[in-house]
């Protein structure tokens, strides 16, 4: 939890490119990836987004791989169920557990592969956005999108405090660990409750102070944010168009189910 994706986004060279273009690329990848009927298109999206993140965004390869492999654990658990319970077709392999015979057939294997490939492609799109666009840049976009002011304000204040509280939580946890607070299960539960409640009380007091500070500076429910003008340059536009055309072509040729 020490490495938030936002830290990398702040240092990314892609930060200074048009937010709208990046959002469009990500939305396109997400929608195409999730509606693709074959694993080929999601795979292509994964490779393209991974390339963009690593090459244009200058994210360390080792860190990126660790990031992508982490959520795969959850996807794998879900896929096991799909593998054994979904679809029809010839038997591929079977397992015997507690007297039950679990059979994986071709339909199930195909579906499991498809779901994993969709998850990975979706993750690569989200990582591209998360590692190239700091939240601060997105607030300007969100403000113009018609979401109620109170919600945007709430998100901005929340964002501000996440990092402060993370620091507090980490230092309390380190202090507890040094004092053998997590040596066995009972103690861990006790320690984590103590950590959470101290954090809650501290953050609440912080919130009360924040209100006084903002009120005395005439806060009227609106924080104004600066949106830098970032025009889309020709090479970016060309590259994005080529990527989009290739993806749609791939989707078209790998057998589509009424998407286009």
């Amino acid at each position: 939890m020490n490495n938030l994706l936002d830290d990398y986004a702040l240092a990314s060279p892609l930060r200074h490119h048009s937010n709208w273009l990046k959002l469009a690329i990500v939305a396109f990848g997400l929608l195409v990836g999730v509606s693709s009927p074959s694993p080929a298109t999601p795979l292509f999206i994964t490779l393209s987004m991974g390339f963009a993140t690593l090459f244009f965004g200058k994210i360390p390869l080792k860190f990126y791989l660790k990031l992508v492999l982490l959520p795969l654990g959850f996807a794998a658990t879900g896929s096991v169920v799909i593998l054994f319970f979904f679809g029809t077709g010839g038997e591929v392999f079977s397992l015997e557990i507690f007297g039950y015979r679990l059979v994986a057939n071709t339909g199930g294997v195909e579906m499991a592969l498809l779901v994993i490939s969709r998850t990975v492609s979706g993750m690569s799109c989200v990582f591209f956005l998360a590692l190239s666009t700091p939240m601060i840049e997105l607030f300007a976009v969100v403000k113009r999108s018609g979401i109620p002011d109170s919600v945007v304000e709430l998100s901005m204040l929340m964002y501000r405090y996440i990092f402060l509280f993370l620091d507090v939580a980490i230092s309390i946890k380190d202090a507890q660990t040094i004092r053998l607070g997590y040596t066995n299960f009972r103690r861990s539960v006790y320690s984590i409750a103590m950590l959470a409640s101290t954090l809650f009380i501290r953050s609440w007091e912080q919130g009360e102070k924040l209100y006084i500070a903002m009120d005395s500076r005439c806060y009227d429910g609106k924080l104004t944010v600066f949106e830098a003008k970032r025009p889309i340059r020709a090479p970016e536009a060309v590259l994005t168009t080529v990527y989009a055309i290739l993806t749609i072509a791939l989707l078209h040729f790998t057998g589509n189910a009424g998407f286009i």
């Binding site: 709430l154 204040l157 929340m158 501000r160 509280f165 946890k173 919130g207 009360e208």
Partner: peptide, 24 residues
């Protein structure tokens, strides 16, 4: 109650940090 927004914001941040911690 105008003071509720900052309080909700810190509560939200608290929930986020809580969910970033690992439970035993």
């Amino acid at each position: 109650r105008r003071d509720i927004l900052p309080l909700l914001a810190v509560a939200g941040a608290f929930i986020f940090v809580l969910s970033a911690l690992k439970l035993p």
